[in-house]
Nucleic acid binder design. Structure first.
Lengths: 255, 255
DNA sequence: CGTGGCCGGATTGGATCCAATATCCGGTGC
DNA sequence: GCACCGGATATTGGATCCAATCCGGCCACG
């Protein structure tokens, strides 16, 4: 098939992927009427698909997002695509240039560093607030994910997904939903780069040790320590990721 | 004119209003070619108009945003409106419900409180980072705004605009543009409520005193003190605003 | 030989039209 | 009298069509 190879077959499976700003589609499953109606508008679905494709790394930073291609790929008209692109733009996942098109956001090492600094601040705060209120069931689920991540046979995508879920579990206990949404948004911005940094596989053992320590602090409901560990964990990850990105692209070039 | 009174003539003048996430239109004015082409796509313009109308309080929290009305009002088709609404949604300024329409975001007192807590964290950090690098010219402009705000004849809208500009001046010196964008976004979320809280006029003298102290700390490049003052200033404002909002609406009702 | 203008294809932005869904209203049965 | 159930209307979501803009290559000209 002589189609453009840019995005072909890049958008299909995977989990829906958490969306911080999706207040619109989040609500109740709406069961009335007997049949569970689609409930999702096409635009919502397209946005979720594209977002997931970007976050998982199937659409790598810098990739062009051509409306026509995406429309064909997803079997819809260009209209839901256009709105989806705008949503992804305001989530920081896509860059839009008028009359020129959209590309997956490609951050410079400096920008990645700033995002991680912001994340460190936000997540440390959320961790400190959450620690006293973490529920046992939550700890149990975190332990389960931690165990799964220990499996060396787990592929990178699976590990990253569990890693994301692991950290995401703590914050809601803070009782600050908007802070959680902010954190999720900032995390999403860095996810494509984490997915692309294949060499980070080597960091899995180190990260695992840190996860165990985080789990321990959470189990003791030690807010300050959990916050400190969270900050340290993020800074370590940031260092490794930035080294990788800077190595791949010595002179950072903006999209 | 028997039109719907909801938004009629609510969208017209005012400053363009800063947009945190508008990476698309923000850049260089594009001078090549001789004439300065419109550069703005219709969607950009509509978004700016609507955003400004919401931030200034002309469209109050809870107001319906009907696509057809807005389209007529602005003399465009519904399409740029639809995209604009989606952008405003992800900025937290509008709530979208599928097949039901959009309304200006109406926060509960609890949500306002959370936003102010987040702001306190972000702005304190930015202030601490910025203080050592504030330029004299910036201080001069801040002093000018402070003087203007002293004028008792200034109306609320003018005072709020200068107040916003005053605080916005410091943060860029932090050198963290993405943090500044986050701050701007969170500030925008609370602006409609500040604009609606007419009783806050009584707080102007107190706020002015705090502004002078902020200015003083900035002039001495005292980061920690500037951060502490910023946090205190925000908490005071939050208390007054929440008291007002809670008073107007004892049982908070979500849109 | 290099440079500038111009034209054609490709792609996005905007408008119009049609379909789907929610709300509101009255009617009907219990 | 009240709850439930349809139909009419209004409003939004999606598709298609046209216009505006950008990018590439080609050609004329200095």
């Amino acid at each position: 098939m002589p189609d453009r190879p840019a995005v072909t077959a890049a958008i299909s499976p995977g989990a829906p992927a958490a969306a911080p700003g999706d207040r619109s589609a989040g609500g109740a499953p709406r069961r009335l009427g007997g049949r569970s109606v689609p409930r999702h508008t096409l635009q919502t679905l397209v946005t979720a698909r594209l977002r997931e494709a970007i976050l998982s790394g199937r659409l790598t930073p810098g990739a062009r997002l051509q409306q026509d291609d995406l429309a064909r790929e997803l079997g819809v008209s260009r209209m839901p695509i256009r709105e989806a692109l705008r949503v992804l733009h305001s989530e920081g996942l896509a860059e839009l240039q008028p009359h020129r098109g959209a590309v997956v956001t490609n951050l410079t090492p400096e920008e990645i560093e700033e995002v991680f600094e912001i994340r460190a601040m936000l997540e440390a705060r959320a961790a400190a607030l959450a620690a006293p209120h973490v529920r046992d069931a939550t700890l149990e689920r975190m332990r389960g994910l931690c165990d799964e991540m220990e499996n060396p046979g787990l592929d990178d995508a699976g590990w990253l997904a569990r890693n994301h879920a692991f950290h995401t579990l703590i914050y809601p206990a803070s009782g600050w939903p908007r802070l959680c949404a902010l954190i999720e948004a900032q995390r999403n911005v860095t996810r494509p780069h984490l997915a692309a940094a294949t060499t980070l596989t080597a960091r899995r053992p180190g990260a695992q040790r840190e996860h165990r320590r985080l789990l321990d602090a959470a189990a003791r409901r030690d807010g300050p320590r959990l916050a400190a560990l969270t900050e340290e964990h993020l800074r370590t990850t940031a260092r490794r990721l930035i080294a990788y990105v800077a190595g791949r692209r010595p002179a950072a070039r903006r999209a």
